[in-house]
Simulated assay, not measured.
Amino acid sequence: MYPIMKKVLFRMDPEVAHEWTIRSLQLLQRVPFLAKSLQQKWEIQHPSLSSQVAGLSFSNPVGLAAGFDKHANVYPALAHLGFGFVEVGTLTPRPQSGNERPRLFRLPEDQAVINRMGFNNHGVEDAVHSFQTLPRPTIPIGINLGKNKDTSNEQASKDYTTGLQALYSYGDYFVINISSPNTQGLRDLQEAKALEKLLTHILQTRDHCIQSHQVKKPIFLKIAPDLTEEQLIEIMEIVLHTKMDGIIATNTTLSRDGLLNQVSTHETGGLSGRPLTSRSTRWIAEIYRFTQGKLPIIGVGGIFTAEDAYAKIRAGASLVQIYTGMIYQGPTVVKQVNQGLVQLLERDGFSSVRDAIGVDVSI
């Protein structure tokens, strides 16, 4: 059905189409038997796909990236679409409307999207209400944390720790998002001195949360694809020194190299989708090589097929995430990728996805 739906959705403004999709998912959440039937149809259960990453259990390695469920209000419905995990947000302490519309643009010729949303979300308190009232899925739920637009970088750690403390009971893992290009100055937090200070403060707060809740929740750092190799190495040294639990590679890019669509290329914002496929895979391999495979990596950027996901796993990713691929191919892409991964693992003689992680990288 999705090719028909896609024609309708692609005639809409991209953000209006997204809002329509969210309302449809909210409706799905009110019809449990329909949600369950979708899960039975689209979920792939196979022993080769299951794994343990950062102390969490995943039935399959294909997750939904942050940015889709911005307000943490449709993750139960999304969990029925066959994902191995779902990441919500980006959430900020206070609600904010984000940047002015239009702020979301499709590039069909490139199978890409440009967005400059600006962390539009209903804030942490609204997310807490959602987590307290909506049913809890059986798959891991990640929470992507950001800072409010009007919070200075000097005060940024307060925003991240506020979100961490308020939502600690509800997330299975947390993501520190300092790599979105759509909040002015945010990527400056990737600079070494600022980053070490920020992560130290966040991890100290996590220590207090561990004492209060008697459970350790892993924290990942999401990085940009536009770093230089020197900047990447500097960041990895800090991540290892501070003992972060993992990396998400990568966020959207500011690059417009090689795009076929010349109409939307002048639009500012982060580019996602097919043009990011090889760039993010290359960064995953660099991170895996530098950390000698000791740090879990979630690979994201331009995954449309099982082969795309498999390349990221072989480059060092323990898990992968999809977003733009679902816009262009529909929710069945999750099932297709998982089915394809089972076949690719069997073809190469791997009994588990764990066995394929980083096999293309020499350490």
Score class of each variant (00 low, 15 high):
residue 9 L to H: 01
residue 12 M to E: 07
residue 13 D to R: 09
residue 17 A to N: 05
residue 18 H to P: 09
residue 26 Q to A: 14
residue 26 Q to S: 14
residue 27 L to E: 14
residue 36 K to R: 15
residue 47 P to Y: 07
residue 64 L to Y: 02
residue 69 D to L: 09
residue 70 K to T: 00
residue 72 A to N: 06
residue 75 Y to Q: 07
residue 76 P to H: 03
residue 77 A to W: 02
residue 82 G to F: 00
residue 86 V to I: 09
residue 87 E to N: 09
residue 118 G to L: 03
residue 136 R to K: 15
residue 140 P to Q: 06
residue 146 G to C: 04
residue 149 K to F: 11
residue 152 S to Q: 08
residue 156 A to W: 06
residue 156 A to V: 05
residue 165 Q to Y: 12
residue 171 G to E: 00
residue 178 I to F: 08
residue 179 S to C: 09
residue 183 T to V: 06
residue 189 L to G: 01
residue 189 L to M: 10
residue 189 L to S: 02
residue 191 E to P: 12
residue 195 L to E: 00
residue 204 Q to W: 14
residue 206 R to S: 10
residue 223 I to T: 01
residue 227 L to I: 07
residue 231 Q to C: 10
residue 232 L to M: 12
residue 240 L to K: 14
residue 246 G to H: 06
residue 249 A to H: 01
residue 251 N to L: 09
residue 255 S to G: 03
residue 259 L to Q: 09
residue 267 E to S: 12
residue 270 G to F: 02
residue 276 L to R: 08
residue 276 L to K: 04
residue 282 R to I: 13
residue 285 A to E: 03
residue 287 I to H: 01
residue 287 I to F: 02
residue 289 R to I: 02
residue 289 R to N: 13
residue 298 I to F: 10
residue 306 A to E: 01
residue 310 Y to R: 02
residue 311 A to M: 13
residue 317 A to K: 00
residue 323 Y to G: 02
residue 326 M to K: 04
residue 327 I to F: 05
residue 329 Q to A: 11
residue 331 P to H: 04
residue 334 V to S: 07
residue 343 Q to C: 15
residue 348 D to G: 03
residue 355 D to I: 02
residue 361 V to K: 00
